[in-house]
């Protein structure tokens, strides 16, 4: 084990969290990520027993998750495994595929609502130009948010994750925080 101390994408020692009304934003610093890209002609593997989702799909199975990122491409999620060699773990499950470590390439913000889907969808309508009807539980989209490219994963009716490039973490946090704040003061 290294004796170096990691920092979060926001530059802190511990993940950041904040709440506005029904909405809570929590930085998910422990999320392990690796991209899985099929080789030419390869059939989709089933890493960690998961059936890899179809276009725009996201699945969660126990301690693992996967979401579609492009034709023949997925991101594999290993919650609370950010310190592990995630790419190696995924490659062991999909030996023929091209796997790249992505844990540290992204910042993940988990947003939960205490009042069901409405506050989440109101938030999304201020952030991304995606029809929330097409972003129900188990769906993922990659799109632009304030000029940044993000993944938005609808984990459940009342939960979603926004994954952005790690270097944009501060700007993304600012965008989410400002928007939540404005939604709260409107109600």
């Amino acid at each position: 084990m290294t004796d170096l101390s990691p920092i979060t994408a926001l530059g802190d020692a511990a993940p950041r969290q904040t709440s506005f009304g029904a909405l809570t934003i929590q930085e998910n610093a422990g999320l392990g990520l690796a991209s899985l890209y099929l080789r030419k002609g390869q059939t989709a593997p089933a890493p960690f027993g998961m059936r890899l989702p179809e276009v725009s799909g996201a699945v969660q199975a126990g301690d693992y998750g996967a979401f579609w990122t492009g034709p023949g491409q997925w991101m594999i999620e290993l919650p609370n495994r950010a310190e592990a060699d995630v790419a190696a773990l995924v490659l062991a499950e999909a030996t023929e595929a091209s796997v790249s470590e992505q844990t540290h390439g992204f910042v993940a913000f988990e947003i939960t609502s205490k009042a069901g889907a409405d506050p989440l969808e109101a938030l999304l309508s201020k952030l991304i130009d995606i029809d929330t009807a097409a972003l129900g539980p188990g769906r993922v989209v990659r799109t632009g948010l304030e000029h940044m490219t993000v993944f938005v994963i609808r984990r459940a009716e009342d939960r979603l994750a926004v994954l952005g490039m790690r270097s944009f973490a501060g700007a993304l946090w600012h965008a989410l925080e400002t928007t939540c704040q404005r939604l709260e003061s409107k109600t």
């Binding site: 099929l38 080789r39 091209s98 790249s100 390439g105 992204f106 490039m165 270097s167």
Partner: peptide
């Protein structure tokens, strides 16, 4: 048979 992934931030 090529797969391209950007890992700049990682």
């Amino acid at each position: 048979d090529v797969q391209l992934i950007s890992t700049t931030d990682a």
